[in-house]
Design a protein around this nucleic acid. Structure first.
Lengths: 202, 202
DNA sequence: TTTAGTCACTGACTTTAGTCAATTATACAG
DNA sequence: CTGTATAATTGACTAAAGTCAGTGACTAAA
């Protein structure tokens, strides 16, 4: 990963990319994410080829946008009082995440993003860094739960954290395919409660 | 839902649909699921419009195919000895389902099918009937667990069944986006064990 | 300064999914 | 048997994503 020299060529390229990105955002807001690449490049005043030298696909741009949203999970987590039980932290953080997904990101973007992940014309690096932040939060909570004796000491903390995040993604996928007859916030809470307390007796 | 009379018109239409379907399968096997609709109708000797009067979209045909696979879950379930604990049944059935998904259906079809579910120009009725069968199996197992006293009597059986199936779908989605660096069978078992025993102490 | 090479950029082109008005074949009522 | 309604089928057409050989402005090395 070498930083490119800031010569005029590089600067112009960055300006072009930004023009494409900005035009896309305006058109997305105006006409939704079905906006064609043709209309984006027309508004940006560049050629189609230029679009594709900056973005691998139409999805790439959308994923760029999603990943640049500041979702503010980390802030929410650090703002939590530290004297509540870790199981409650888990629930609260997860509720917050679902709120953001439902209200700030929205069904259309989530669908596109999940579709892009499957078809993957897309560089997943940024997506993974997003995961890493989430993962750290869950890891901390579960570690805390084990330390404080609320959670089983036999837990594989890393694995459990990953499974919490997978549950969020799973429920969000379910939301995509069942929309609007599915309440993802309600369901993720039910799922977490199952994960916390288990199905088996004692 | 009225049964159509079997006049020659209906029979011919069914034959046309079958010719399209069979050609598609041959081409899918030969060139993968990227096969174009044009080449399918060329091989079937029908027009493109005809294709679209039988299938809403290219995905529809693929979904049709996936749903017509006899996945044999039900048989596997009924062949289980009835004296093993319900928690083991849950694990065994789920392992079987994952085996089928991984080996009989395969990553390419699963990806297409999951993509189709998200983009959904597609009639989900058949997908739902597939779910219904699975759902019945899980419902029975969990009911048995409650009756025999292995599972908590306070469980909402229907909700827990749904969440088991959602977990399968969630993990399968994860497999799609992480392939090949993800072992869905291993992970679904871990997830189920968490669901069964819980994270919290006693 | 010259010159070879790089890189953003161009736009016509290809590919493919999906549409729809027109056409043809069949069913059915009188 | 005749005319009319209905359903299946056609294929030219649209729309949109993505490609690629070519262009010229800019960089950097001699």
């Amino acid at each position: 990963m070498e930083a490119k020299k800031e010569n005029s060529r590089v600067i112009k390229a960055a300006q072009t990319k930004k023009r494409i990105y900005d035009s896309a955002l305006i058109l997305f807001k105006r006409h939704g994410f079905g906006t064609s690449v043709d209309s984006i490049v027309e508004m940006a005043g560049v050629s189609k080829g230029s679009f594709y030298s900056h973005y691998n696909s139409k999805f790439s741009l959308i994923i760029d946008y999603v990943n640049n949203l500041d979702l503010g999970y980390a802030d929410f987590f650090t703002s939590l009082p530290s004297d509540i039980p870790p199981s409650s932290m888990l629930i609260l953080v997860t509720e917050k995440i679902m709120d953001v997904i439902i209200n700030d990101v929205g069904i259309d973007l989530i669908k596109l993003s999940y579709e892009a992940q499957i078809t993957k014309t897309v560089n997943t690096d940024i997506q993974l860094s997003y995961d890493r932040k989430l993962y750290q939060i869950y890891n901390q909570i579960i570690q805390l739960g084990v330390q404080q004796g609320e959670f089983k000491s036999t837990l594989d903390i890393e694995s459990v954290s990953k499974h919490c995040i997978m549950s969020i993604r799973g429920i969000t996928y379910e939301w995509c395919i069942r929309f609007p007859d599915f309440d993802p916030k309600d369901e993720i809470i039910k799922h977490l409660n199952l994960l916390l307390s288990g199905i088996k007796k004692g």
